[in-house]
């Protein structure tokens, strides 16, 4: 199963719509619909099928986003709507150095998260493809960081680093690296959060890459061997191009995961020390629910939403294009 669903899902995103069954992909002629029982009753049924989901989608997704847009131009709080203040909230937010720092860290966090987990996931997928005793077992065990709830693994990582007596600082001390306090030093905390994110995400990449590698025609490798290509050349000129589509899709998904990621950072560092590990999502949450500045908080969230809508529309088009080529 694993990546099939997503590949198919992306497939349909590319096509734009459903294809009416894999048996007959895109040639779904209008005349076909006449074969369905009574054209009108069919449309009614389909509409009724979609109705519950449409209502919930509007109520729980579209309406809140619209409301957030309105609320970001008001000075209300969680209980009252407040008065219209125009772009005041946006101005406040954009003038804060903390906001730009959060934006920058979101970028770093995302880049490290995407490419770090991809590199490790790909390396492990390549390693597990070779003949190793019990490699099925390792494949399952290595997925655990992805399966275990983030609340649980964040607690475990906390135990690893939180105090000077925790295992990691003790080990560092043993090797003469002083006694680093990962949660108190801004730079160390940033590195820690990024490493933690890669730890959580690499199994996802490993699964994606394993399924991509499985579909590579093995004869090509034989051929390249005959032609005297080295391992690095084989990898760069054969393996990489052949898994490029899945790679691209997994980058897109992981980018969305990283930008929107809240618990990974919040549960490990809470955004601290001194806001050094705050991403935009964490900052929006903290601003609204801890500092009770609803207006500016919603403004941050809405800015992010706008950017993400633009990005996802572009990516949606891009995914469709990749397929056509």
């Amino acid at each position: 199963m694993s990546t099939e669903t997503i590949t198919r899902g992306i497939g349909r995103a590319r096509r734009g719509v459903g294809n009416g069954g894999a048996g007959r992909p895109v040639q779904f002629k209008p005349s076909n619909s006449n074969r369905m029982p009574g054209h009108r009753s069919r449309s009614t049924t389909l509409l009724l099928f979609a109705l519950p989901s449409l209502i919930l989608l509007v109520l729980l997704n579209v309406y809140p986003v619209g409301y957030a847009g309105v609320q970001s131009a008001r000075n209300g709080d969680l209980l009252s709507a407040g008065d219209f203040v125009g772009g005041q909230n946006y101005l406040t937010v954009l003038q804060q150095p903390v906001f730009w720092h959060a934006a920058l860290f979101t970028l770093i966090f995302t880049l490290v998260g995407v490419f770090g987990s991809w590199a490790i996931g790909l390396a492990l997928a390549l390693l597990l493809r070779t003949r190793i005793p019990a490699n099925g077992l390792f494949r399952v065990l290595l997925l655990l960081p992805w399966v275990v709830p983030i609340v649980v693994s964040a607690t475990a990582w906390n135990w690893l680093v939180a105090t000077p007596q925790s295992p990691l600082p003790v080990i560092a001390n043993f090797f003469g690296l002083g006694n680093p306090l990962f949660l108190a030093d801004p730079t160390l905390a940033q590195i820690l959060v990024c490493v933690y994110k890669v730890w959580i995400s690499f199994p996802f990449m490993m699964m994606m890459m394993t399924s991509a590698l499985a579909s590579v025609d093995t004869n090509v490798y034989e051929a390249s061997k005959v032609d005297g290509a080295g391992p690095w050349q084989t990898f760069r000129l054969i393996t990489l191009p052949m898994i490029s589509r899945t790679t691209y899709i997994s980058w897109i998904l992981m980018t969305i995961f990283c930008v929107n990621d809240f618990p990974t950072i919040f549960l490990l560092t809470g955004g601290g020390p001194v806001q050094s590990t705050q991403t935009l999502v964490v900052m929006a949450y903290v601003t609204v629910f801890q500092n009770y500045q609803t207006g500016p908080g919603v403004a941050i969230a809405f800015l992010m939403t706008l950017v993400l809508v633009i990005i996802s529309v572009v990516l949606y088009r891009q995914i469709r294009k990749v397929n056509i080529e």
Binding site: Q71, F262, V298, M304
Partner: peptide, 10 residues
């Protein structure tokens, strides 16, 4: 692809 935070507040 939207952040949950945006929907949670409203």
């Amino acid at each position: 692809s939207l952040p949950v935070v945006t929907a949670v507040i409203p």
